[in-house]
Deep mutational scan, measured.
Amino acid sequence: HITLTNLITEETTHVVMKTDAEFVCERTLKYFLGIAGGKWVVSYFWVTQSIKERKMLNEHDFEVRGDVVNGRNHQGPKRARESQDRKIFRGLEICCYGPFTNMPTDQLEWMVQLCGASVVKELSSFTLGTGVHPIVVVQPDAWTEDNGFHAIGQMCEAPVVTREWVLDSVALYQCQELDTYLIPQIPHSHY
């Protein structure tokens, strides 16, 4: 019994991606959610070859190996599938703050939850000092008015990073160091 759908849910078992011959794909929301959820992320060749051979072929032979941004053979989907007991964002409290493009905020929040993070909706909701690490995620190029994202640091004691930190961490299924993704914050004294 196979159901085809464009939506990823808890029940989804396989995410089928358009890939090149070496099982490398573009980074899409579907790709990120498939990895975050520990699903099989496979090339569409799995479907076409299975139909051709009239049997369901082994997914291992068709698993996506990499993507056009993070590298052609990083094995993120395999790492995620085999590490669902070791979520990459466990112990983190993440607030997805401000506008985002090409990806609804609720989907970004679901993605970080699938990776083990707790989501907070407001900067004031962080449970500071409880052994949980707060992180604010923003997408600077989605902000149309002044660079308000440079002043988020005044509203909460949390590192502010770009959305790329989430996307790179999920694609590779390895929590990336914050340093290269940090957004400089204007210190309090400048006000």
Results as ranks from 00 to 15, higher is better:
2 I>T: 09
2 I>E: 01
3 T>A: 12
4 L>R: 02
4 L>F: 15
5 T>H: 08
7 L>W: 13
7 L>N: 15
8 I>F: 08
9 T>K: 04
9 T>L: 08
10 E>R: 11
10 E>D: 03
11 E>W: 11
11 E>M: 08
11 E>S: 09
12 T>P: 00
15 V>F: 03
16 V>L: 14
17 M>L: 03
17 M>R: 00
19 T>G: 00
22 E>K: 12
23 F>R: 13
23 F>V: 04
23 F>I: 08
29 L>S: 06
32 F>R: 00
34 G>A: 08
37 G>S: 10
38 G>T: 12
39 K>L: 01
39 K>F: 06
40 W>S: 05
41 V>A: 01
42 V>S: 04
42 V>R: 04
42 V>E: 00
47 V>L: 13
49 Q>G: 02
52 K>A: 06
54 R>L: 12
54 R>S: 10
56 M>V: 06
57 L>M: 07
58 N>L: 12
61 D>M: 09
61 D>S: 08
61 D>G: 09
61 D>V: 07
61 D>L: 10
64 V>F: 01
68 V>D: 11
68 V>P: 09
69 V>L: 09
69 V>I: 05
70 N>T: 07
70 N>G: 13
71 G>L: 02
71 G>P: 07
72 R>S: 12
74 H>F: 00
74 H>P: 06
75 Q>I: 09
77 P>S: 06
78 K>V: 03
78 K>N: 04
79 R>A: 09
82 E>L: 11
84 Q>F: 13
84 Q>V: 14
86 R>F: 11
89 F>I: 02
89 F>A: 02
90 R>P: 04
90 R>L: 11
90 R>H: 12
91 G>K: 13
92 L>R: 13
93 E>Q: 06
93 E>C: 15
94 I>P: 01
95 C>N: 05
96 C>L: 10
96 C>S: 07
98 G>L: 02
99 P>R: 11
101 T>A: 14
101 T>N: 09
101 T>P: 08
102 N>M: 14
103 M>S: 04
103 M>E: 04
105 T>S: 14
106 D>A: 03
109 E>K: 13
110 W>E: 11
110 W>A: 06
111 M>V: 13
112 V>A: 12
112 V>D: 01
113 Q>G: 05
113 Q>R: 11
114 L>R: 07
116 G>A: 06
116 G>L: 03
116 G>V: 00
116 G>R: 00
117 A>H: 01
119 V>R: 13
119 V>A: 12
120 V>T: 09
120 V>P: 11
120 V>L: 11
121 K>N: 13
122 E>M: 11
122 E>A: 05
122 E>P: 03
126 F>M: 14
130 T>S: 15
131 G>R: 01
132 V>L: 15
132 V>G: 05
133 H>Q: 10
135 I>V: 12
135 I>L: 02
137 V>A: 06
138 V>E: 01
138 V>Q: 05
139 Q>M: 03
140 P>T: 02
141 D>E: 15
141 D>S: 13
143 W>C: 07
143 W>P: 09
143 W>M: 05
144 T>S: 09
145 E>T: 08
145 E>L: 14
147 N>M: 12
147 N>S: 10
149 F>M: 05
149 F>L: 14
150 H>N: 05
150 H>L: 11
151 A>P: 10
152 I>R: 10
152 I>K: 14
152 I>M: 07
153 G>P: 11
153 G>C: 02
156 C>G: 06
156 C>R: 15
157 E>T: 15
157 E>Q: 11
157 E>G: 05
159 P>N: 15
161 V>W: 02
161 V>R: 04
163 R>G: 04
163 R>P: 06
165 W>G: 03
165 W>L: 02
166 V>R: 02
166 V>P: 04
167 L>P: 02
167 L>Q: 04
167 L>K: 00
172 L>V: 09
173 Y>D: 06
173 Y>K: 04
173 Y>L: 13
174 Q>P: 03
175 C>S: 15
175 C>R: 15
178 L>W: 15
179 D>G: 11
182 L>E: 10
182 L>M: 04
182 L>V: 10
183 I>R: 10
184 P>R: 14
185 Q>M: 09
185 Q>H: 04
186 I>E: 10
186 I>K: 07
187 P>T: 15
187 P>M: 08
187 P>N: 13
188 H>T: 08
188 H>N: 06
189 S>P: 05
189 S>Y: 07
190 H>K: 11
